[in-house]
């Protein structure tokens, strides 16, 4: 067989293999709160902030705590290492990344989603 194909093919195969092997450790699954509680892996959870429950930022430790509920109505407490994210109050949905440990979800990343603010609502139309 031609040397050039061996060479090129080797590069391709090596990298595809590398990509596949490292893939598992580098993906984070979306799970429900119930699933997050049952697992100790790094996961991400999609839900919304429970405004009525205690929400607190601790500046000494730089930790932000709040309660979150998912679609099936399960809730848990989230402890996020970092400040309260921008737009947290107006976010319709939040995604937290982290793991569940001792009755608390320890989060290292929060994404806030603000769809309702980016498309007008009829109430706003009539107010204006």
């Amino acid at each position: 067989m031609n040397k050039k194909y061996i060479f090129g093919g080797l590069i391709i195969l090596t990298f595809i293999a590398l990509a596949m092997f490292s893939f598992q450790d580098n993906t984070t699954e979306f799970v429900t709160i119930a699933e997050a509680k049952a697992s100790n892996e790094n996961v991400q959870v999609y839900g919304h902030w429970l405004k009525d429950k205690e929400t607190n930022y601790n500046p000494e430790k730089n930790e932000f705590e709040f309660f979150m509920e998912d679609e099936s109505g399960n809730t848990f407490k989230v402890l996020h290492s970092g400040a309260k994210p921008n737009n947290f109050e107006i976010a319709a949905k939040v995604v937290v990344k982290g793991h569940y440990e001792n009755d608390i979800f320890i989060s290292n990343q929060i994404l806030t989603k603000c769809p309702s603010k980016y498309e007008g609502t009829i109430e706003e139309l009539q107010e204006s």
Partner: peptide, 14 residues
């Protein structure tokens, strides 16, 4: 399968 996303470090590593 369960929806998941790829971490930033995967891109950097490869």
């Amino acid at each position: 399968i369960t929806k998941s996303t790829v971490e930033v470090k995967w891109y950097n590593q490869l």
